[in-house]
Design a protein around this nucleic acid. Structure first.
Lengths: 153, 153
DNA sequence: CCATAATAGTTACATATGTAACTAATAGCT
DNA sequence: AGCTATTAGTTACATATGTAACTATTATGG
């Protein structure tokens, strides 16, 4: 019987390739706001979510940025301590609390957004406009597929 | 003067989208070999690199899997303790040590590879063959671009 | 050769992250 | 109303990871 064992070429293995690409992109971006603004990745994402959709509860933030409630709780605690966001307990359901950026938070958010968008733009310069769109669409379909597979292990 | 502040749509922001996709794919894959085989992500990658290119030194493994030497050192220590890899100090340069899978490591590797490839295949089912190829190519170009930007901050 | 630098790898410390247990408040059922 | 189940959020503990300092060994320039 012949040996039919398969070969895993790590460098052509999709999950691995995605991991490498994401890692370098995330690190680059992180350098742009971690040092200058002292934010962690999760803190920045919380701010980005609030900058766009506030007011949100911590749970809603978690859904927006696909982050579990513990991570959100920690990020929110740090942002509150620094006065970058505000929390207001819901009077009709005191488990919930609405979060939004403070004035200082809005100011920082407004300074970071152009930096983030500029990085994205420079990254995208490697692709033609129609390629960007196509890549986006393929990402969407892979994500949808990955979510399906997650529920059918 | 009008307000020209830009808006960051997190859900359309490439670094964010990549991060979400990679996270769900990595978690799915991790579930497939973490529980059954008790490996961390880094340990599995070290095994995958050795399965394909052994013998390698720890540094060479790190280059293959884009992982810093500390992470590799820790993964190697764990794999050695479990007897999944073997280390042989180079006699002409005793700083270096060649690593390769042990018999037990090869056996485990051979069991994991089909599982990993099957997952990749199921993930790819969301895309037509020519789309897969295109996606791969676009990933490559984005990665190249990201690497360039990393050196030109 | 000898002093210094560079390289391979490990260890130590500070942070970050995940899992599970916990508190507090509300909803739902009888 | 009163018991139980859910939900929002926090805390605690165990692991994981990154940065920097360290050891051991080899390379290099004078």
């Amino acid at each position: 019987m012949a040996n039919h064992s398969q070969v895993l070429e790590l460098e052509n293995f999709l999950p691995y390739r995605l991991s490498i690409l994401t890692q370098i992109v995330s690190e680059s971006l992180h350098d742009l706001y971690a040092g200058p603004f002292g934010l962690t990745v999760t803190q920045w994402r919380v701010m980005a979510a609030l900058g766009r959709f506030a007011p949100l509860t911590a749970s809603e933030v978690g859904q927006r940025i696909v982050m579990d409630k513990v991570a959100v709780s920690r990020a929110v605690a740090g942002l509150l301590k620094r006065g970058l966001i505000e929390r207001a307990t819901d009077r009709s359901d005191r488990r919930r609390a609405a979060l939004k950026l403070s004035a200082a938070g809005r100011s920082m958010h407004a300074r970071i957004v152009p930096i983030a968008l500029a990085y994205e733009e420079r990254l995208y310069e490697g692709l033609a406009p129609e390629e960007r769109q196509h890549f986006d669409e393929l990402c969407d379909r892979l994500l949808a597929r990955a979510k399906v597979l997650r529920d059918i292990p």
